[in-house]
């Protein structure tokens, strides 16, 4: 009886938390996310792209009934979740329309998508990327970027935010680059990863528990520099660049 009541309460709670969403059919394409704060990207095995609002969307004002939400770029909310989406062939661009709808947006991304995220806002929050096998292209000013269960290829930079990435495996399909100007870059990869690590720091240090091998140059020397060097893991593989301007780079094996 006690459990039954608990389940009923839980069900009620879940219904209260019902999420609003927008869906695009198709398992592949280009996904552009422009200036949307608080974004989570989650890998999906479904053949559709779904954008969910985390939690309940803020209450739509009574006065706005019969009106549409517009922004200075001429876009209006055509998703019903405070975003504008435009389509160009197989390419979808999402833009923030509302200044008030401060919820986190969760994008469920099929493998076949190529994801581009760009944000210049100091209020962008943390960009979470979980179990996404799609190729990633992230340009951020303030976001902290946290990745887990990712494979690459990817190019990610943030001026102020740190980058933390836990790779489930390292794809050999294309280069991987993680760069933060002012914060740490902290990466862990599986022990069997094959990669050419390019490790660069200006004012910080590089820390690692991986036995890297250092290739000889044409002049017969191994060029070792504490601030900028190349190290091969398991004989080398895909180009994998980790860079921090004013902080440290951490490279770990899982």
């Amino acid at each position: 009886m006690k459990n039954l009541i608990l389940y009923i309460c839980l069900l009620g709670f879940i219904q209260m938390q019902a999420q609003e969403s927008y869906t695009i059919d198709g398992a592949s394409g280009e996904l552009y996310i422009h200036e949307i704060n608080k974004v989570t990207l989650v890998g999906s095995n479904e053949s559709k792209l779904t954008v969910e609002v985390d939690g309940k969307l803020y209450e739509t004002p009574e006065k706005s009934k019969g009106l549409k939400l517009i922004n200075p770029a001429g876009y209006s909310d055509n998703t019903g979740i405070g975003l504008h989406v435009s389509k160009d062939g197989n390419s979808y661009s999402f833009r923030r329309i509302s200044n008030k709808k401060g919820n986190r947006y969760i994008f469920h991304v099929p493998k076949g998508y190529h994801v581009h995220y760009e944000s210049s806002s100091y209020n962008a929050g943390t960009l979470h990327i979980n179990d996404v096998e799609a190729e990633l292209d992230v340009s951020a000013n303030y976001n902290r970027v946290e990745l887990s269960g990712v494979t690459g290829p990817m190019a990610i930079h943030s001026v102020y935010g740190g980058i933390e990435a836990k790779f489930s495996s390292v794809s050999q399909e294309g280069p991987i680059s993680l760069y933060s100007v002012y914060s740490d870059v902290d990466v862990s990869v599986p022990a069997n990863t094959k990669a050419n690590f390019n490790l660069k720091v200006s004012y910080g240090d590089v820390f690692s528990d991986i036995d890297l091998s250092y290739p000889q140059s044409e002049d017969g020397f191994k060029h070792l520099n504490a601030k900028k060097f190349t190290g091969l893991m398991n004989g080398g593989g895909v180009d994998f660049t980790l860079k921090s301007g004013y902080n440290n780079v951490y490279l770990r094996k899982q």
């Binding site: 549409k68 517009i70 922004n71 200075p72 770029a73 001429g74 008030k100 806002s121």
Partner: peptide, 27 residues
């Protein structure tokens, strides 16, 4: 700046004169 802009009038937006920054919208 921190609120939203709603309308049901279809008017032409001059994108060059409009300003679209985070927490600063001028249409």
């Amino acid at each position: 700046n921190y609120g939203d802009i709603y309308t049901d009038i279809d008017f032409d937006i001059n994108k060059e004169k409009s300003e679209n920054e985070m927490f600063h919208s001028v249409i």
